[in-house]
Design a protein around this nucleic acid. Structure first.
Lengths: 163, 163
DNA sequence: GATTGGTACTTGTCTAATCAATCATTGAGC
DNA sequence: GCTCAATGATTGATTAGACAAGTACCAATC
């Protein structure tokens, strides 16, 4: 269904770029909700899950707090308290770096790894179910187009407009 | 830049559908932030802006509260208080429907329309700057792919998994 | 070794989002 | 007309997010 119809818009989009922006956010929200439907019943939010995934990828050594923030899918300024919550759930541990005592290294704990493992399969299935109808060719093309979209976007964000 | 590189992932995505899901949410977050950079300095959030846009499209008659919620780009359960805030800013008005007293019709006020008008041009420019580098052909294709992605997604959300 | 600028968080405070429970109202069936 | 489930919206309590200011630390210079 076209986005204009889905949102019952009375008039067509003035420019294709605007339609693309709306379609993009709307589609991403659906993905986010599909993912949340799998993750949140296990007692963590999608953002907390994102942090755990990042830390699993980082391995033994862990990562400093702000390094995690940079790698998040959705950027958040509240990274400290986000990790506070993961720590109080005993899913991650934190330790001040000895060589640079300003940094705090975060590591995923075995409880966190186990939680992630229980989510790996259901999430893969959910993604497959949600986007699998598209075919490899379409997915490849979509990923490619999104990569290019981000190029212009990050440039636009770095050079904020002067209204 | 490919998404795996952007997020400094240590291993490649196991499936293209997962890469697409991550790229989608990441890209949408960039769009959201670019839009927010234009809108929020005027004292409203992107969600409040979304409501105002919906009500402008709805015209004189307005829309019942939950009808607005359905048309939002990002679905929110907190629609009542979202509109509360718009009402206290005197950007919208509310009135209980006389034929079905359960419903509350919301209408955009002239102050709201004026605010929207001041945002129309800067937003269009920002969108153009952010996605304009892509070319009409690419945008068309992107919109088309996203439309198809949503088909599978809404099906997946309506039939929640039984974990 | 004191100073200065910058980095890496952390904390306080306020605002906003979420979830469950509630209320008024309606329409359908008896 | 009376019940009773369903609808539309609101409220209360908890949790989370946003922004600004603050703390601790490092590295380089004077």
């Amino acid at each position: 269904m076209p986005i204009a119809e889905e949102l019952k818009q009375s008039r067509p989009f003035p420019a294709k770029s605007q339609e693309a922006a709306v379609a993009l956010m709307r589609t991403a929200d659906l993905v986010r909700r599909a993912v949340a439907a799998v993750i949140e019943p296990r007692g963590i939010t999608t953002q907390q899950y994102n942090v755990l995934r990042i830390l699993r990828g980082a391995g033994e050594r862990g990562l400093p707090t702000l390094e995690i923030a940079e790698r998040m899918i959705e950027q958040t300024p509240g990274i400290t308290r986000l990790i506070d919550r993961l720590e109080s759930k005993r899913l991650v541990s934190r330790e001040r770096c000895t060589t640079d005592r300003r940094q705090v290294f975060c590591r995923i704990r075995s409880e966190g790894l186990e939680l992630l493992e229980t989510l790996d399969k259901p999430l893969a299935e959910s993604e497959q179910e949600a986007l699998g109808s598209m075919g490899q060719q379409d997915l490849l093309q979509l990923v490619e187009l999104l990569d290019r979209a981000r190029t212009g976007l990050s440039a636009a964000l770095l050079a904020p407009r002067t209204n």
